[in-house]
Design a binder for these strands. Structure first.
Lengths: 196, 196, 196, 196
DNA sequence: CATGAATGAGTATTCATTCAT
DNA sequence: GATGAATGAATACTCATTCAT
């Protein structure tokens, strides 16, 4: 990749990050291209130089988010750790990520509303990948008799829901750092799984 | 209340319910007055007879939701039941309500974005009321040594988060009814609290 | 049709006429919705109440134009007149229409650029209809040995082209009225056909 | 002219030809600088090295067209040929030129919309020159009693209109070559003039 | 000379809101 | 009370134009 290409890639990534943040904060429709651009001291026009349209920006933002989380969960799965610690690590990473990126792995409404065709398929694929990885960890724990025999999908959804909701109530002004909060939360959520 | 007043009140409530549903489905900004009116075979114009503006509609919708949940939680608190059963009942009601109304107790983004001044205070008050009631139940359980000594606020947020997220994944086409699902979920979430 | 419906239909027709004129004058892309609205002392918003979008406005304008000319040519074809007079009448009507409506039967570029799918088919159909009617008149004249044996399609295109071009050079400030000019032109163009 | 200047001149001419074609195809406003540049595998930026702005490009394109046609008509006028053949030659050249350059001597709308001041004068001058040359040929034919006594200006406009319209209907996929078509058309149009 | 990038003015379009009937 | 119509403010998007490298 040439220097110029690197610069372009960086700029694109910057815009995506900016977009993720603003959209997570205000919602897709309430976010204007102006908002996203202003945050980076750019003009709308520039953003359009890098992205086809607002929807494209949303798609790529969301895709980036999901890819990052898939990368994260895959790495952790491949670590040589006890299953319980793996799952805790995943949860903590998930929570810290949400807090630090000020975003959410979950759109505030169904992807079907925003994407269609190939885009929707890719997004669904990535979501499924993450969900499956999560499920895999839970199942492994169940096999190992460390987790109780729960309905994997439901429990996974509950845990992800509880984590994604954190952005609604966690305040950076509070006493606890993101990491501390992630530690506490993962401990609590683990209780849903741990054999008593 | 005269007949006319009753009729008006009913119409208002109808509109609110319609609004709650569409807004929950598509998000506030993506929802047009047309959408809300069309669902009731009305015209936009008529809606304005009953509500000052779109924001007012949102406010009253959301307030209604919160009032209903507060009413619900208060009734359950006053029942003569073991604490564990009370909390389970609250959770089940919360979940069933979310599924049936196809809405969410939580706006998809912070209330601060939509309300201000007195409205915001009232909304915050109602949310606090609900949170406090929830906390009260948790604390009672802790006092009674039935629940373990968790950080009440965090756990409450986790549970509410997990429940509010249900709308993102529960499908009415699935095998389980809302009640069955609520039963299962509340059982799982209860594990966060129950002493092991 | 109720009074209200009549009013709406009239308004629509007014907008179409306004659009036809401005678009014929400045071209589709150079014409703004503002231009069209301003001409009728309306706001853009109002125009959008009656028409889906700018393209829709163009389509309906053009369709109206073609329908009117088809109606005109059909009426003349059905008159009980010598073939030569029929064709002259068609030409004169065509020319007077172009001058009075300040528009052109022909878009300035190919319809394919503006329409697609069903719209394009309908436009093509209407154009074909007009062309066929024109051809029919020419052929009739040839059969009757009044016109010479020309290539019907080419001659039709030449005549229509010459007439559509009138809008480029006819000035309302000149000495001749539209009718006089139409008279002269049709006489000249007839020479292409008349047996010598 | 130095080599460099020659190169520059060639590039300019290339761009002009490209511009003429695209503008004739899509219309001035629908044509983007990108379109023109892309056709020559250039970037927009480069085009600006050679031309001040889009309007300048249009002006020079159009001027070039008119100059070429003036050159053509002048050459033919100066040939030693019977008047009838001269006019036929002019028409054929005009038609072949339009078809080959895929452009039109006539802008799709009035020059007044695109040019002003000196530019407009020059364009008008060139148009007038062409028109006058055309008229001169017609008048010569009338003097020679070969053409009938028509209104020169009107007939000239009719003939030019019929020819400029060719681009709207002539298809390169048809059986007839541009030259054959030009032959046929000029023959037909000549009938307007020829004494019967 | 060429070009990638940035910009801003202009335009289509949407939609909450108003109001006369 | 209801509604068809009208409006204008807001916003996505395009594209001619500029300029640093």
């Amino acid at each position: 990749m040439s220097l110029r290409e690197k610069k372009t890639a960086k700029k694109k990534a910057d815009i995506l990050r900016s977009a993720v943040e603003v959209i997570a904060e205000k919602g897709y429709h309430a976010t204007t291209m102006e908002d996203i651009a202003a945050k980076l001291l750019m003009t709308k026009g520039s953003v359009y130089y890098y992205f086809k349209d607002k929807q494209d920006l949303l798609y790529q933002s969301y895709k980036m988010l999901l890819e990052q989380s898939n990368k994260m969960i895959t790495e952790i799965i491949n670590m040589n750790l006890p299953i319980k610690e793996k799952l805790e690590k995943v949860m903590k990473s998930h929570i810290v990520f949400i807090i630090s990126e000020r975003s959410s792995y979950g759109l505030k409404v169904k992807p079907e509303h925003y994407f269609e065709g190939e885009q929707l398929e890719i997004i669904f694929g990535l979501q499924e990948n993450y969900a499956n990885s999560f499920d895999q960890l839970i199942e492994e724990g169940i096999q190992a008799k460390i987790f109780s025999e729960v309905d994997v999908k439901i429990v996974r959804n509950l845990i992800i829901g509880a984590m994604n909701w954190v952005i609604q109530w966690y305040s950076t002004e509070g006493k606890k750092s993101a990491e501390e909060m992630a530690e506490i939360i993962s401990e609590y959520l683990m209780k849903i799984l741990i054999r008593s």
